[in-house]
Design a protein around this nucleic acid. Structure first.
Lengths: 209, 209
DNA sequence: GCGTCGGTCTTCGTATACATTCCCGCGATG
DNA sequence: CATCGCGGGAATGTATACGAAGACCGACGC
């Protein structure tokens, strides 16, 4: 894997984990030193994160970790409300037992009462699950825009209200069942309901944590 | 404006204009020399175009102008079929006479029989019009993903079948009227119809030009 | 004719330098 | 005491050079 991708992945991880907080400056020299690389890969990684929406750049002041206010959260959910049902519908039109099996694995891990209840880990699983649905559509373009969207959603929930409502996980069962059964209409409806739940939850506990 | 943005814009223009053909290698040195800059801004610009989907990179072989096959065209239209109606609906829920006026300007320029019938220019106007609709939604996230999508659509039509069907332009009147009238349902339906027409047209004349 | 080897080209990452610009603090001044 | 302005430091933006590694292409040998 190319170094710039490693750097981008690491920065993404740090941002999603809250180690780099919104508004924080991303100083190229420091990041380069921190990660043990030169400035170039850092700069290229920052461009990627910029395109994905995780960082913003101000003229002559470089990159900052993006800040998500309520309006932006609404904006993202508005788009998600269009793309998640689309993804679910397209996924349900296809058959891919391997991916469905992986979805179920993620689900059972998320609901395993013996596992740790680390909220960040749960959030990762949640993103994985949604990403798997998009991957199952076989639509490369949709995947390309939906994966960053899902990750931003994860980040958003992390900042505003971690996913503690078990209802969200319950809904995944219905969604996956509809996809596995090859019922596009039902899958679409389930996805829609799920996004609405997430949005509702995001608005319930603003600023939690 | 930063040099990397100038370079990115110029490369985008060259690609959309067909001066850089799909599959062509983007050799950093050559582009740097061609544009009179050093390699760094070129590299960063390529990352941006990569994120936008205009170039692909193969390991150790660098960047190529992306190739759009029929499957990818279908993928993009599938997403557009979700996002354009959403954009139209959200735009119709808002009022923005200035933007509506600009839309009408674009329309009249596109249909001005005395203007040149340069297909590339028409394609630019078409992209502008759709971009304006998305901008009117006020949804920054939607704009961020929809603008590159529209441009890719323009590129796609250019490669496969330039927009010569006047029906597509006729439909814009209905769309804009619905937005201006503040009728979200109608705007959504018009947008949907328009995307379906474009998709149909794209499939009609494969490989034209 | 076919496969292998080697050279060349290009990317990728590193290192370094320098001008510009921004920011912050400090001091001068009203 | 507050405010304004200036200067120094810091960071970005850009340029340039270099080495390593991989990919491509052609020549050469079998």
């Amino acid at each position: 894997m190319r170094l710039r991708e490693v750097v981008a992945a690491e920065l993404r991880r740090l941002i999603l984990a809250g180690r780099l907080v919104p508004g924080e400056r991303l100083v190229e020299d420091r990041l380069a030193e921190l990660l043990g690389v030169s400035r170039n890969p850092v700069r290229e990684a920052i461009r990627v994160l910029e395109a994905e929406g995780f960082v913003e750049t101000a003229a002559r002041r470089g990159a900052l970790v993006a800040t998500l206010d309520e309006d932006q959260a609404d904006d993202i959910f508005e788009v998600r409300l269009a793309l998640e049902p689309l993804g679910a519908r397209l996924a349900a039109r296809r058959e891919n037992p391997a991916l469905v099996a992986r979805m179920k694995e993620v689900l059972s891990e998320a609901q395993d009462p013996t596992a740790d209840r680390d909220l960040d880990h749960l959030a990762d699983l949640h993103s994985d699950l949604h990403s798997l649905v998009f991957e199952m559509t076989g639509n490369a373009y949709l995947v390309a825009i939906a994966i960053p969207m899902v990750k931003r959603g994860q980040w958003l929930l992390r900042q505003r209200s971690p996913l503690r409502d078990p209802r969200a996980w319950e809904q995944h069962h219905g969604l996956i069942a509809a996809i596995e059964a090859g019922d596009p209409e039902l899958a679409e409806a389930e996805a829609r309901r799920h996004v609405l739940t997430m949005r509702h939850e995001s608005r319930q506990e603003p600023g939690a944590r």
